[in-house]
């Protein structure tokens, strides 16, 4: 059993997150069991408020689950203290945010090396340059974020997420703030991280086109897993999405 568990880069067991108390209680996650194999690309979809962001936050140690467990490469990290969770975020998880979250006073190159700096180490220059090259920004290494376009900033953020060779890359609507052409570039990049670097990617999205880049699509509704599609196509995802929306409306 132990050997089996560790083939998953990330696993959640009965993950539950409740906000508020008494009558105003919101159950953002109501027992989510999911396992993400190493080297897989998974899209998480669902209506607004279905718990997607909460799921990523709980996994990354930004939020604490009310119940259940989070296993990262087989290690239970649920009860880790804040400092250990911080180290986890800079070494074993790469987070890509909808709004990039670059430090405004650091250049592209310095932003990519930041997780190493936070660990008190000097970034490996060749590696940082190599990653910037990979995301097509070798010539922008010394630019500050304010001088980069949205797509360029998101590519810097992806390079930063890759720099520590994390167990899993978590992306919350990474293309939500980008136009469709730029978004395709970012999605292709995430796909390449999986195919060429063997990374594991979990991406929240509302866009069927984005979801079709993934190997698997998981649907969340009201904090529960409400279905999945393997080898998704845009049409299949859109149809399922419409179906779930109808259910949500009729409820």
């Amino acid at each position: 059993m132990a050997a089996l568990t560790t083939t998953f880069a990330l696993e959640t067991q009965d993950l539950t997150r409740t906000f508020g108390e008494g009558a105003g209680t919101v159950q953002a996650l109501a027992g989510v069991d999911l396992a993400f194999p190493r080297g897989s690309f998974t899209a998480v979809m669902g209506p607004s408020g279905s718990g997607k962001s909460t799921f990523l936050s709980c996994v990354a140690g930004i939020d604490r689950p009310s119940a259940g467990r989070v296993l990262l490469a087989g290690t239970d990290v649920t009860s880790w203290d804040e400092d250990r969770l911080a180290r986890l975020r800079r070494r074993r998880i790469g987070f890509v945010f909808q709004d990039f979250q670059l430090m405004p006073y650091l250049t592209a190159e310095q932003n990519v090396g930041l997780p190493w700096r936070l660990s008190g180490r000097r970034p490996d220059r060749a590696r940082v340059r190599g990653l910037l090259d990979r995301v097509g920004l070798a010539d922008r290494a010394h630019h500050l974020p304010a001088r980069l376009s949205g797509g360029q900033r998101q590519r810097v953020a992806i390079a930063r997420a890759l720099v520590a060779e994390p167990d899993v890359i978590l992306a919350d609507e990474p293309t939500g703030a980008l136009d469709s052409a730029t978004a395709r570039g970012v999605l292709a990049l995430l796909r390449a991280c999986v195919d060429e670097l063997g990374q594991t990617v979990v991406m929240v999205t509302h866009d069927p086109v984005a979801a079709a880049y993934a190997d698997t699509v998981v649907f969340l509704v009201d904090g529960r897993v409400a279905g999945r599609i393997e080898a998704p196509t845009v049409d299949a995802v859109a149809a399922r999405q419409a179906h779930l929306d109808e259910q949500a409306v009729s409820r």
């Binding site: 911080a86 987070f95 945010f97």
Partner: peptide, 12 residues
């Protein structure tokens, strides 16, 4: 907050 999200500890 961004620094914290990226793995900086509050003490840091």
């Amino acid at each position: 907050r961004r620094l914290w999200l990226l793995g900086g500890t509050p003490a840091q």
